[in-house]
């Protein structure tokens, strides 16, 4: 276990030394600051009635979180893809695995370190966002902690998947495939909500399957649910006969079976990554 923690702390230290953390901090401060200005204008600009503001604020929060979840996913894919294959190519890993450590400890350490970074980043930015939205508009999301946890889980899912790819593919290929499949899963989710609204069974089934194959969008949908008040959802459904087709509207919390499947999926992909890395010729 100590080797896992050593590699995890090394991975985190690398992110700090290479100024990855500083870059994300600056970008996040700018984004949260800009969103604060936008939320202030939305609630104090006088362009909307109070009813319209009540409808606009949750949507704006979801849009901000959507952009933020994309940043988390992109980061997970980028750092995950670089973690293994580029270190094998450069010869860094050869010096580490020669030590009395198991390869599984090295990969687990990297996974833990990168997941820790994603977790810290998600927690800090979500906390800042909740605070900024409250100070500027008075709006409080129903359960921002649950939403942040699901966005974090979404990032960990993609990180784990890209780490698996990175044990066999080049960093570039692993990163591109990770992002492409993340986008595809989101698109399949949007297609699924439309299919539900318009009763297109085949598309609905395909969308459902995709949510299980790569559970990123399923988790994102769960995050949306915890950001929108139930009164907002009711109003949206009443306002539009095809309200169910809105990809930024979640009608139900993610079922526990789905969350359980996500946990099983994570363990399976992680174990597959460990086996793949263990059998790889260095």
């Amino acid at each position: 276990m100590s080797a896992v923690l050593t590699i995890a702390s090394l991975t985190m230290r690398e992110a700090v030394r290479r100024r990855l953390v500083a870059a994300f901090a600056v970008i996040s401060i700018v984004l949260v600051g800009a969103s604060g200005w936008a939320f202030y204008k939305l609630s104090h600009g006088g362009a909307f009635t109070s009813g319209e503001t009540n409808l606009a604020l949750p949507q704006a929060v979801v849009l901000f979180m959507f952009m933020f979840s994309f940043v988390v996913a992109l980061s997970a894919s980028a750092v995950g893809s670089l973690a293994v294959s580029s270190e094998i190519d450069s010869g860094v890993l050869q010096t580490v695995v020669a030590r009395p450590v198991r390869r599984s400890e090295v990969l687990l350490g990297k996974w833990l370190g990168l997941a820790g970074l994603l977790g810290a980043y998600t927690a800090i930015v979500s906390g800042l966002q909740v605070a900024v939205v409250y100070w500027t508009s008075g709006f409080v999301e129903p359960d921002p902690a649950a939403a942040a946890a699901l966005v974090f889980a979404e990032g960990v899912v993609l990180l784990t998947f890209v780490l698996l790819l990175s044990t066999r593919l080049s960093a570039l290929a692993a990163g591109v495939i990770g992002i492409a499949l993340f986008g595809l899963a989101w698109l399949a989710g949007v297609g699924g909500t439309l299919a539900t609204a318009f009763n297109i069974h085949a598309l609905h089934t395909a969308s459902e399957v995709s949510q299980y194959l790569l559970p990123t969008n399923g988790l994102w949908q769960g995050a949306i649910y915890y950001l929108e008040p139930s009164s907002f959802v009711t109003q949206q459904l009443a306002a539009s006969p095809v309200g169910q087709g809105d990809p930024f509207l979640a009608l139900a919390a993610p079922p526990w079976q789905y969350l359980a499947w996500t946990a099983v999926w994570l363990v399976l992909i992680l174990v597959l990554g460990l086996v793949s890395f263990d059998r790889r010729e260095l």
Binding site: L10, E14, R17, S90, G91, V92, Q94, T95, A98, P100
Partner: peptide, 16 residues
């Protein structure tokens, strides 16, 4: 392996 030292031909340490 604690008693073994190894210098690979092609290697690099963490440059940072």
């Amino acid at each position: 392996r604690r008693q073994i030292g190894y210098l690979p031909e092609l290697f690099r340490f963490q440059s940072w």
